[in-house]
Nucleic acid binder design. Structure first.
Length: 207
DNA sequence: CCCTGATTCGC
DNA sequence: GCGAATCAGG
């Protein structure tokens, strides 16, 4: 007669630890899809965590890595910070083995709520002509004509809006500035570094 | 200090 | 698999 030997695996311990917690949040397919969509749209991990609810930004980042989603890459030297491929010295409880971070492509990160508020204030304060603002995803954008690629001309704003993989993807299509592929609003977004917008927003917040 | 993403490792 | 802790960097 053979005895069945119980082997406690990592999965068993995880299941036990998870099932005994009442507030245990699991990554359902729906939440994973939402995570993928928001990450692709360029939202930060903390923003995604806030939208999903019940998870921290670390949880979001961890999930992103486990899903092997593309990381963020700096664009124009103003977007996502990058990390040195090697850590100079190991901290107290860390081994000195750090693999180089794989470089990968990623969409531009969208501005955070504070940035959006600051930009909206700027627009409302400086706009000499009436302009209708609308919210698309996490961005506040001017009234767009929602043109498709083939509808763009020399005089239309070519700022992309939405997820290129989704049906609702379109271009702003507003009247472009002279010599710019973008309208007055998106030209600012395209050429003003995110950090400067953030600094301006913080200065306003502090009074 | 605020924020960001990246990584490790105990669970 | 999960995510807190901890890192580097803007």
């Amino acid at each position: 007669m053979r005895r069945i030997i119980f082997v406690a695996t990592v999965s068993d311990s995880v299941f036990y630890a998870c099932s005994r917690r009442r507030d245990c949040m699991n990554w359902t397919d729906e939440r994973v899809e939402k995570l993928k969509r928001l990450w692709a749209e360029g939202l930060s991990a903390s923003q995604i965590a806030a939208q999903l609810g019940g998870v921290s930004r670390n949880a979001v980042i961890g999930k992103v890595h486990r899903l092997n989603l593309p990381g963020r890459v700096k664009a124009g030297g103003t977007a996502t910070p990058t990390r040195a491929p090697k850590r100079p010295a190991a901290p107290q409880q860390r081994p000195a083995s750090f693999a180089a971070r794989p470089a990968s492509q990623a969409p531009l990160r969208q501005p955070r709520p504070a940035d959006i508020a600051a930009m909206q204030d700027e627009i409302e304060a400086s706009a000499s002509e009436p302009r209708i603002l609308e919210t698309v995803g996490n961005s506040v954008v001017p009234m767009a004509r929602r043109l498709t690629l083939t509808e763009l001309t020399e005089r239309t704003c070519k700022w992309p809006v939405g997820d290129p993989l989704k049906d609702d993807f379109h271009f702003c299509g507003a009247e472009a500035c002279d010599g710019s592929p973008y309208c007055k609003y998106h030209a600012r977004m395209a050429y003003q570094p995110v950090n400067e917008r953030r600094r301006a927003a913080n200065a306003v917040a502090r009074g």
